[in-house]
Amino acid sequence: MITSSIVLYKTAKDELNTVVSSVLDSCISFLYLIDNSPNRELESFVAKFDKKRVFYIFNDRNLGYGAGHNIAIREAIRKNACYHIVLNPDIKFKADAVTKICEYMNHNPDVGQVMPKILYSDSNIQYLCKLLPSPMDLFGRRFIPIKKYKEKRAYKYELHAMGYDKIMEIPVLSGCFMFMRVDVLKKVGGFDERFFMYSEDVDLCRRIGEVSKTMFYPMASVYHGYEKGSYKSWKLLKYHICSAIQYFNKWGWVFDKKRILRNKECLDALSQKK
C-alpha cells in the first residue's frame, strides 16, 4: 500500500486539481489533504474527488509544513502502508513514475527514501540533489552579492557535475517529492515539528540517511513548479532564515563532523562513477 499527503494553505484550486489528478491516476492508495488554511474554503472543492481515496483534514490553524504531514504519516503507520509520499501542491506526474519508484524500492530494501528526477515544466532539470548544508551554503549563497561565488558554491552543493543521469546516493533530497519507506519513518519519527517551514525536509532526509540509503533515481521523473517563495516574500524569507538557524543549532554550525564525513563519502563515491 502507498499513501501520500499534501499540506494545503490557501492553495490554488487549479494547482490542487492537477496534483490530485496525478495521484488518482497512479497506484497510490490514499491521499491525505491536510488543510492549514484559515478557513474551509477548499473543502467543497475537494469534495468532488473520490472520497474512498482522498481524505480532507482541516486543522483550523496553521500547524506548519512538517506537523501537517505528520498527521498523514501517522495514518500511514496505522494502516501499515509500505510507502508514504510527501508531495508539494505544485507537483504533477504520470502514473508510471510512482510505479517505477515502487519497483525500485521493492528490489532495494536498504533504501529508505527516493527522489526521482525533478523537472521544470519545460523539462529542464531542477538541481535538487544536495550535500548536507553548511552555513555558507544556506546563508552565503543567499546574501553574499558576488555572482561567481554563488554559482561556484551552488555547482558543488547541488552536485551539478554529476550530470543527474545516474542512480546516486545523495545526502539531501528535495522535500517536493519524498518517496519514503514507512518502516523507516517509524524509526526516525517523521518530521521534527520544531521546524515550522523550510529545512524540515533536510532534517528528515538527514535522519533517514543515518538508518538507510537516500537515493536519487532518474529513471522516473516528475514536474515541479518551484516557486522559490522565500525569494519573493519577506515573510517566507523570515521563516527560511529561522529554520536554517534551527537546523544549525540542532546539528552544528562549524563543527559538524557527521556532515563533513557524509559529504566526503558522497563526493568520493560519485567521483568513482564518473
Rank of each mutant, 00 (worst) to 15 (best):
A76C: 11
A76G: 07
I77L: 08
I77Y: 06
R78H: 13
R78S: 15
R78V: 01
K79S: 14
K79L: 15
K79A: 14
K79E: 14
N80V: 03
N80M: 02
N80I: 06
A81Q: 07
C82P: 11
C82E: 15
H84S: 12
H84T: 10
H84A: 12
H84K: 10
I85M: 09
I85G: 13
I85P: 11
V86C: 14
V86D: 02
L87F: 09
L87Q: 05
L87D: 09
N88V: 02
P89V: 09
P89K: 03
D90V: 04
D90M: 10
D90C: 14
I91S: 03
I91M: 15
I91Y: 01
K92C: 12
K92V: 07
F93L: 01
F93V: 00
F93K: 02
F93M: 01
F93W: 03
K94H: 14
K94Q: 14
A95H: 06
A95M: 04
D96T: 09
D96G: 00
D96M: 04
D96R: 06
A97L: 05
A97K: 02
A97W: 05
V98F: 07
V98Y: 03
T99M: 09
T99W: 02
T99H: 05
K100L: 11
I101R: 01
I101G: 09
C102E: 14
C102M: 14
C102A: 14
E103H: 05
Y104E: 08
Y104M: 04
M105N: 06
M105I: 05
H107E: 13
H107Q: 09
H107I: 00
H107D: 12
H107L: 12
N108M: 02
N108G: 04
P109M: 07
D110W: 00
D110H: 04
D110Q: 09
D110S: 14
D110L: 08
V111M: 04
G112H: 01
G112R: 01
G112V: 05
Q113M: 15
Q113R: 07
Q113G: 10
V114W: 00
V114T: 05
M115Y: 00
M115F: 00
M115I: 00
P116A: 06
P116E: 03
P116I: 00
K117C: 11
K117S: 13
K117L: 15
K117V: 01
L119K: 07
Y120H: 14
Y120P: 03
S121I: 05
S121H: 06
S121P: 14
D122K: 02
D122E: 08
D122S: 10
S123M: 05
N124A: 13
N124D: 12
I125L: 10
I125P: 15
Q126S: 14
Q126E: 13
Q126V: 10
Q126K: 12
Y127E: 11
Y127F: 15
Y127H: 13
Y127L: 08
C129V: 05
C129D: 08
C129G: 03
K130P: 11
K130I: 00
K130S: 12
L131F: 09
L131R: 02
L131C: 10
L131G: 07
L131E: 11
L132A: 04
L132Y: 08
L132F: 03
L132Q: 07
P133V: 07
P133A: 15
P133S: 12
S134F: 06
S134L: 01
P135F: 10
